[in-house]
Design a protein around this nucleic acid. Structure first.
Length: 881
RNA sequence: GGGCGCAUAGCUCAGCUGGUUCAGAGCACCUGCCUUACAAGCAGGGGGUCGGCGGUUCGAAUCCGUCUGCGCCCACCA
């Protein structure tokens, strides 16, 4: 049957994925084998595949497939994350498009829509992972809001509450006035934003609430918050403002009297040295307010509009109010001047709204104790970060961690299990019945109807930090008495985690905390941190820029194998990946190369009676050594998570060594047959190569593994044992390099002298050339006669030097030309020798350099001397003619 | 502003404890080939004072200092 020279993945990839599914190839159950476990970094349930996933998932898949072929019980648990903010905002947007506002819905109605959306879109990304070839154990697919996983989250909350680590506190949070939720510091993006620096006059009060003619000037970027001012602060060391001590000033426009206080926080040389203190709307001001017992006047509502406390401009959006108040201040004569000013402003990562610092009551989890444990886990090396440059960053974060604000003003997520009594006290229990019982204990006679559950839900990470535990046994987290089921005991801790450095703290560190707390053991041994996928210009892939290709389109065009190896060949750990289509093209080319080498091998005619030629025997010997050597290198790279290096080693082994050298050597001439021994070896090598390639290119390798040897219908390369490195004869490999160089030299002679490749050469070799490899050189260079001799004799021809070997090609050559060439070579050798001798005559060198290095120099000297000698005798032979 | 890291070929990166695996790989580029597996290919080839400047050393891409440029994290001077 004719096999097309073009490889067509569309005929192959889907077929094999289905076959693997049908034959339960991905499924794992505890048994006596050693487990190798990975939990997927759960993608957002409503997300769609992007290039970052491709990188991450492929790396995960390479690791799990390798482990599986190594005979481990490999288990890769897939799943999705409910991603409270991201999903909720998508649902809100979708409802809005249908003319429905979230505010018009009850919590239950909204959640019904949200679940519908989840059911509709939740499977998309998982299906996309299958197209990529992800060998997840789909029977174990989990979702962070599965009922039992949600239970474990609630139980965990109660656990930490009862342990005294969860508390309710008033805190300045980052308020997203569009998303109507508090967002964590990490979800705020600071961008330099052009604004203005308004210099405002605050008149000194006469004590009766009337302005005097004296005033001070403050500089602010937020004039709309003056109505919330609680004081003016100056630095106590600032001599300019000594006279202000004990004075009161009047807030412009509303004439409210506020004190002048002194606080060293104020920088004397910034602005005017006077700071308006607005505790309700600025984090630092809040801290100052605490120190000086200042009132907190909150003038901005949840939507970012001024409220009644503002007295003026009530109901205006804060940004609109800013413009209006500037005009009012100007008219009132309080605006001294306006400067252009660029300052960092916080924006919501999710909604891009300007973040409003806002005081609110939130739930917090104390971090110091947990962070201490998690720091120790990494410092001690129990968890290894790859690359380990992230250890510094990790330490810095853990040592400066702040308490974790775990409440979110959303509906999509696990609702906080706190119930309020009518008097404001509250109880924290896992369910309403227990809450009622607890409430009755402190307020007898209370009924279920009197209790009101907290409206907020928990931060998404508060569920995903349990992931490596809860996917196996959701009953474990938060229950110190729970034994843990068989799965948990077998699979926990997992082995490796592959994820992006951007969630090192959000997720990785917190998983370590949860693991330490609930299991007494870290959830994984190695954390491989990938880079961020960027475009060719170094920009982050983003929807708005439109610079992110759809991975599914790429897979359709090039095939998953090409996309996988294309991404991985150039991705070293921790380095960002600059994605370009050419990488995937390289992957496609590699597929083509593999495919065509199969076409060649499958077309061999075997002649059982044919004896193995010397050249073939040498080729087989060489490649088996080369293979052993490469396998060892590959294992070393993998063990250090140098995935791209491992793949490049395999790539070159296949392309350069197997195809360009080995197959060229053993392939029979047109119409001729191959001997049995060489053929068997060739197929065997091919299989080993397929197995090495399989973890990164699962589809084409599965196809060819079946094609190359019939009778494997019920089997899969997925479980074929990884080839192990055998003994490797490095000296032979080195000798073969000599043969390669000789072949290259002979080709060069042909080019130079214009000799057709079909015309046989007469070649003599002088020096330590292994006789075993003469047939190799002869075959590859079409040499009619090749012998090792002591002396080149009288014949004229071209010669060249290959390391320790001199090669002489019998030709009719221009003697003059040849003489000139040899003389030039002698000149070069002489100057080289001079350099070496200069080095050797340096006593400092011979005294300080290691013996090995000195010996090397001496050898250079000797080699050079003998080369010169040989060249000179050649020269005189030529001259005698 | 504080901390961490990076700078090697046009691009992406290797280069471990200073010295023969030290100037490398892949891609891109140039030249010649539609040679019987493969033009998505084959055979050749060019290309880097290892960011600048100092220092240590017999010897520095490698160690130290410094400058310049870049990246990330933390904090956000109103």
């Amino acid at each position: 049957m004719e096999i097309s020279s073009k490889y067509d993945p569309s005929q192959i990839e889907g077929k094999w994925y289905q076959w693997w599914l049908d034959n339960k190839c991905f499924h794992s159950e505890p048994d006596e084998r050693e487990p190798y476990t990975i939990v997927i970094p759960p993608p957002n349930v409503t997300g769609i595949l992007h290039m970052g996933h491709v990188l991450n998932i492929t790396l995960n898949d390479v690791l799990i497939r390798r482990a599986r072929m190594d005979g481990k019980n490999a288990c890769w648990v897939p799943g999705t994350d409910h991603a409270s903010i991201a999903t909720e905002s998508k649902v809100v947007a979708k409802l809005k498009a249908r003319g429905i506002s979230k505010e018009d819905l009850t919590r239950e109605e909204f959640l019904k829509y949200a679940w519908e959306w989840k059911e509709e879109h939740g499977g998309i990304i998982l299906n996309q992972l299958r197209k990529l070839g992800a060998s997840c154990d789909w029977d174990r697919t989990r979702f962070t809001m599965d009922p039992d996983l949600s239970d474990s989250v609630i139980r965990t909350f109660v656990y930490f509450y009862k342990k005294g680590l969860i508390y309710r506190g008033v805190r300045m949070v980052n308020w997203d006035p569009v998303g109507l939720t508090a967002v964590s510091d990490e979800e705020v993006i600071h961008r330099d934003t052009k604004s203005h620096f308004y210099h405002l006059r605050y008149y000194i009060s006469d004590g009766q609430g009337h302005p005097t003619d004296k005033y001070l000037v403050i500089a602010t970027t937020r004039p709309e918050t003056i109505m919330a001012d609680a004081a003016i602060s100056v630095n106590p060391a600032d001599e300019r403002y000594g006279w202000l001590k004990g004075k009161k000033v009047l807030i412009p426009l509303i004439n409210r009297e506020i004190p002048v206080i002194e606080d060293s926080y104020v920088e004397m040389d910034f602005g005017t040295g006077c700071l308006k203190v607005t505790p309700a709307h600025d984090v630092n001001d809040y801290e100052i307010g605490l120190r000086h017992n200042l009132p907190v006047i909150d003038i901005i509502d949840d939507h970012g509009r001024l409220n009644e406390n503002a007295v003026i401009l009530v109901g205006e959006d804060r940004l609109v109010a800013r413009k209006k108040i500037v005009k009012m201040l100007e008219e009132a004569g309080n605006l001294e001047k306006v400067e252009e000013y660029t300052s960092p402003v916080g924006y919501s990562e999710r909604t891009d709204a300007v973040i409003e610092p806002k005081l609110s009551t939130q739930w917090f989890l104390k971090m110091d104790q947990l962070a201490g444990m998690a720091l120790e886990s990494v410092e001690s090396g129990k968890v290894k970060l790859i690359p380990d440059k992230y250890r510094n960053t990790y330490r810095h974060w853990m040592e400066n961690v702040r308490d974790w604000c775990i409440s979110r003003q959303l509906w999509w997520g696990q609702r906080i299990p706190a119930w309020y009594l009518p008097d404001g006290r509250y109880v924290v229990e896992t369910d309403e019945n227990k809450a009622l019982a607890a409430a009755q204990a402190i307020m007898p006679g209370i009924t279920a109807g009197d209790l009101v559950q907290d409206e907020d839900v928990l931060d998404t990470w508060f569920s995903s930090w349990l992931w490596p535990i809860s996917v196996f046994d959701p009953s474990k987290p938060g229950d110190s008495k729970a034994e843990g089921n068989a799965d948990l005991k077998y699979y926990y801790p997992t082995n490796d985690l592959v994820t992006g450095p951007d969630i090192l703290f959000f997720w990785v560190a917190r998983m370590i905390m949860a693991g330490d707390e609930f299991m007494g053991e870290e959830p994984f041994r190695n954390v491989y941190l990938t880079g961020i996928v960027r475009d060719k210009l170094g920009r982050k892939m983003s929807k708005t820029l439109g610079n992110s290709p759809d991975p599914i389109d790429l897979i359709t065009e090039y095939g998953a194998d090409s996309v996988r190896i294309g991404m991985l060949l150039c991705s070293s750990a921790g380095n960002d990946i600059f994605y370009d289509v050419s990488q995937v093209e390289q992957g496609r080319n590699f597929c083509g190369k593999i495919w065509n080498s199969y076409r060649l091998v499958s077309g061999f005619n075997v002649d059982e009676a044919l004896p193995q030629s010397e050249a073939c025997a040498a080729a087989v010997k060489w490649f088996s050594n080369k293979l052993a050597q490469a396998i060892e290198t590959v294992e070393d790279h993998y063990s250090k998570f140098r995935i791209s290096d491992a793949l490049m080693t395999i790539y070159k082994l296949f392309w350069d060594d197997y195809c360009s050298w080995y197959l060229e050597l053993v392939k029979p001439g047109f119409g001729q047959a191959i001997d049995k021994a060489t053929f068997d070896a060739t197929i065997g090598f091919f299989e080993d190569l397929l197995k090495l390639i399989h973890p990164v290119m699962p589809f084409i390798t599965e196809e060819l593994w079946h094609a190359i040897r019939p009778g494997r219908e019920s089997d899969t390369i997925m479980y074929a044992p990884t080839p192990k490195a055998g003994a490797c004869d490095a000296a032979f490999i080195d000798a073969f390099e000599l043969a390669k160089e000789t072949v290259a030299g002979l080709r060069a002679v042909r080019n130079q002298k214009g000799i057709s490749p079909k015309e046989g050469l007469q070649v003599k070799v002088k020096g330590a050339f292994p006789a075993e490899l003469l047939p190799v050189v002869a075959k590859l260079s079409n040499t009619a006669s090749l012998e090792v001799c002591e002396d080149f004799g009288e014949a004229s021809g071209a010669s060249f030097m290959v390391r320790t070997v001199e090669v002489f090609v019998a030709l009719n050559v221009n003697v003059e030309e040849e003489i000139a060439k040899i003389e030039a070579q002698i000149e070069y050798q002489k100057s080289f020798l001079e350099g070496v001798r200069k080095k050797l005559s340096n006593e400092n060198f011979t005294a300080h350099a290691p013996e090995k290095v000195v010996a090397m120099e001496r050898k250079k000297e000797q080699d050079s001397l003998s080369k010169i000698e040989s060249l000179q005798s050649q020269l005189s032979a030529l001259k005698n003619k």
